[in-house]
Design a protein around this nucleic acid. Structure first.
Ligand SMILES: [Zn+2]
Ligand SMILES: [Zn+2]
Ligand SMILES: [Zn+2]
Ligand SMILES: [Zn+2]
Lengths: 135, 135
DNA sequence: AGTAAACGTGTAATAACATTACACGGGTGC
DNA sequence: GCACCCGTGTAATGTTATTACACGTTTACT
């Protein structure tokens, strides 16, 4: 359960993580599969298995509203409790940030009600400044 | 674009909304389809079209982390800016609440960066008090 | 009345996302 | 050797969502 700063990555995990870090944006599991066909990937499960581990290690986040995955911006997310994402619906850019105060408020809400929180999903959809300026 | 308090529902919309209000919990589109076979539903699109409108009217919310839909707890969500959901992974119960302070903080973050926010998703996964007490 | 636009509907086909099941191989500890 | 854990390969299947095309009703304008 302890978060490792430098977990050992298997071959498949390293390939999937590489795809995501090169991408500079979110990728779906099937997009990753397509990128890795030349590296020998054949089936979705190879991608999903690697993603499961990478998410567990905190190296990758799943974007629920996109059914996609993105490399963590902080090279290992042990540093912050929980992440939030601002997603541009025009250009696809994703910005990860750590709204600690907001998360504290949400956490307090759960604690007041005896709800045992295991995962927080915060995703903001909209249009980024750059795209908004470009009209 | 104006939110109507009592939008007129078509036959299919009323059937789908009825399924969700009776359910007392989230349903997937295909679960709704199964419930409504006796009422003449035959294809997923009939459900998705109705859900699109119901979400637009604020009568129904989509839970991104569950790929499911739930009736709004406030009989028309015009009252609150944005909703959050606490979802029990054990019993499936969903509690909708309105963390206005947390949402203000997130909204301020976006405004500071010129991000034009259109939709906020906040979903908390965990175990509810009742299920935690039952061990 | 004619007719065009907007909207809801019905159906089939397909696309996109995710999991289950089974088999195999390499290590580690006994 | 042998059991155990873990990662892997592959096929099949399950689940969620969309595209495409056709039809009918209502409204509004001419
Ligand atoms: Zn992160
Ligand atoms: Zn953008
Ligand atoms: Zn609501
Ligand atoms: Zn529960």
């Amino acid at each position: 359960m302890t978060a490792h700063v430098h977990p050992h990555l298997t071959k498949n995990q390293a390939l999937v993580f590489g795809s995501l870090t090169e991408a500079e944006g979110p990728l779906t599991a099937y997009a990753i599969l397509d990128h890795l066909r030349d590296s020998g990937f054949r089936a979705p499960l190879q991608v999903y298995r690697a993603l499961d581990k990478l998410v567990e290690y905190g190296l990758v986040h799943r974007l629920e509203s996109l059914n996609a995955f993105v490399a963590c911006s902080h090279s290992g997310c042990a540093s912050h409790k929980s992440a939030a994402f601002a997603i541009c619906d025009t250009c696809g850019q994703v910005v990860e940030f750590s709204p600690d105060e907001a998360i504290d408020l949400l956490t307090n809400w759960t604690q007041d009600r005896g709800f045992q929180l295991s995962k927080t999903t915060i995703e903001l959809r909209g249009v980024c400044q750059k795209c908004a300026a470009a009209n």
